[in-house]
């Protein structure tokens, strides 16, 4: 008899799906006020206020706020821009810094209580960011080397027999113009999407188990514990994805600036 209950109580559960990502507009009827869009605006506001506050009263002996702001800035400038791009890196620090803080803040919104939605799990946001990066590094490369030399460097690798170019040139073109922006955006999107879905499965599942019979009630703390553990794991993934997106942008810019690929 308990077994029947166990089976039956599983029937009402609706597993989380892609529908959970299409949230209704906050203001009814206005489709531009969905949660992701509002969160993106909130993130821009938060980043601006934070860094203006952190840099306004700059002192030799930094306050805690100034120290936090400067360590993020220093991380992007030194570890991402300078180590990868080399000399003349200061031109790209503003873009890389904007990219890093924007992605990081929006990702972390995925685990902030009450907000709890990573805007990057809608694929259009990573697409736009990847298009910016795409335009940036090709523009820089073309302006630095001229369009003929830039394309020649991409298409024809030195030291290869002529016949092999038939095989390799399409691959180089596809890699530089299609696969790079696509993987850049899809990696961020897929990580955020899967992470949010994973948290939904464990939290909603735990909640549903709690409403079941006594046997299921005993299991639900494990589901919640797993959900909490995965939240910390998600925090790591969110930071890592913001880092990788910015790192790859820096490396693509460095590749476009380098004379020899």
């Amino acid at each position: 008899m308990p077994l029947v209950h166990l089976l039956r109580s599983g029937e009402g559960f609706v597993p989380p799906s892609t529908n959970d990502f299409n949230l209704p507009p906050v203001i009814a009827g206005n489709e531009y006020t969905t949660k992701p869009i509002l969160l993106v605006f909130l993130s821009v506001l938060m980043i601006s206020v934070f860094f203006i506050m952190a840099s306004r009263k700059a002192a030799i002996v930094p306050s805690k706020l100034q120290f936090a702001g400067e360590s993020i800035y220093g991380f992007v400038r030194n570890d991402l821009a300078r180590d990868n791009i080399g000399h003349d890196f200061m031109r790209f620090v503003p873009y890389l810094f904007t990219l890093f803080t924007f992605i990081l803040t929006n990702n972390i919104f995925g685990i902030v209580p009450l907000l709890q939605f990573p805007a990057m799990s809608h694929v259009s946001f990573p697409y736009v960011l990847a298009i910016f990066t795409f335009i940036t590094f090709h523009y820089i490369g073309i302006r630095k080397q001229g369009i003929r030399k830039y394309m020649k460097d991409i298409m024809f690798m030195p030291g290869v027999p002529k016949a092999a170019y038939i095989l390799l040139t399409p691959l180089e073109l596809a890699t530089f113009f299609i696969v790079r922006p696509l993987t850049l955006s899809l990696r961020l999107f897929a990580n955020m999407f899967a992470g949010h879905l994973l948290l939904l499965v464990f939290i909603l599942g735990g909640d549903h188990l709690l409403k079941g019979v006594i046997g299921l009630k005993l299991i639900s703390p494990f589901a919640f514990a797993f959900g909490i553990g995965l939240t910390f794991f998600e925090f790591m993934v969110q930071c890592l994805q913001a880092y990788i997106f910015t790192l790859l942008t820096a490396l693509y810019i460095a590749g476009a600036l380098a004379d020899e690929h």
Binding site: N84, T183, L247, L251
Partner: peptide, 8 residues
Amino acid sequence: THNEGDAW
């Protein structure tokens, strides 16, 4: 960091 970029 270069290694990571190379792998990707």
